[in-house]
Design a protein around this nucleic acid. Structure first.
Lengths: 150, 150
DNA sequence: CGCTAAACCGCAACTACTTGCAAATAGGAA
DNA sequence: TTCCTATTTGCAAGTAGTTGCGGTTTAGCG
């Protein structure tokens, strides 16, 4: 079902005369399939079995390239490391304060906030980020925030 | 008018048997007065004239201490560096994509988003961050995004 | 005024992520 | 198949924010 996204991405690369190398291809597939909003490190680790000689630099190069094409988005969360998110469609993130897990959820885009911010500050607004924080279901259990049952 | 905030802060420290050293006092005053959401580095630089021998470690120690008391809030923006914001009252930030300037603006807290996120993901939600991005008035001019006049 | 634990000082060391570089490799158009 | 050049590789070096630690000061209580 996400085939389409993949093919669109590849087409986008070809249109920009960017070569589709096996490594690049694998990185793109991994990004599309992943729900984990991976870091460069995670991508490198995940593809190591398939490309035992791949360089970290390759991962960084490709991430930068994809980010320049706006195919993926860079995310700064609490970590020092940059996370990447395939820009499928607008959505927001809930982040677990305990284990750092990031989960997507959909919600109408907050266009009103942008308008208000622009009016109040004089900025030329072109986007926003929203992150919701809390404890993921697993960590609620681990930390005993949940009654035994339920 | 922000006298009150300062005195409340000091009282809070004394209540916790935390000493009010000149350095700590200066850092707190600086944080309250600043609109720049400073980093440790900025605070250190700003207080250097007054305390020529102050250590960066002192700044970090105090920031951590204040953060533990929830008197200030840590902010992760695009920078690698952590910014700090005195937790006066809830508000949101607009961040300039060009120069990194951060400006506050007020807006009703987005409680609805939190509720939706909780329902959809099963997280135990306890807060959120929202940042709006764009170009500050100065950078709009610098980058020629604004017609000559106005 | 004197005491004692809390703070400060001064760096050096850390920690991780990220990037640079030069040589070797391999897409893909013709 | 051939050729041109984008890309990959393999480290090593860079970057910067942040922290550790031993010795010295000092706030604040009595």
């Amino acid at each position: 079902m996400q085939e389409t996204v993949y093919h669109q991405t590849i087409a986008r690369l070809r249109a920009n005369k960017i070569r589709v190398t096996p490594q690049r291809d694998a990185i793109i597939k991994y990004l599309i399939a992943s729900e984990a909003h991976p870091t460069a490190e995670m991508i490198f680790a995940a593809l190591s079995p398939e490309f035992p000689h791949m360089s970290v630099a390759t991962v960084y190069n490709n991430l930068k390239l994809l980010a320049d094409l706006h195919l993926i988005e860079e995310m700064n969360v609490g970590d020092p490391a940059t996370h990447f998110d395939f820009a499928l469609e607008p959505h927001y993130h809930v982040i677990c304060r305990n284990c750092g897990k990031i989960v997507d959820f959909s919600y109408d885009q907050l266009t009103d906030v942008e308008a208000v911010a622009a009016k109040k500050t004089g900025f030329l607004v072109d986007g926003h980020h929203l992150e919701v924080y809390g404890l993921c279901p697993d960590c609620q259990i681990k930390l005993g925030k949940v009654p035994a049952s339920k």
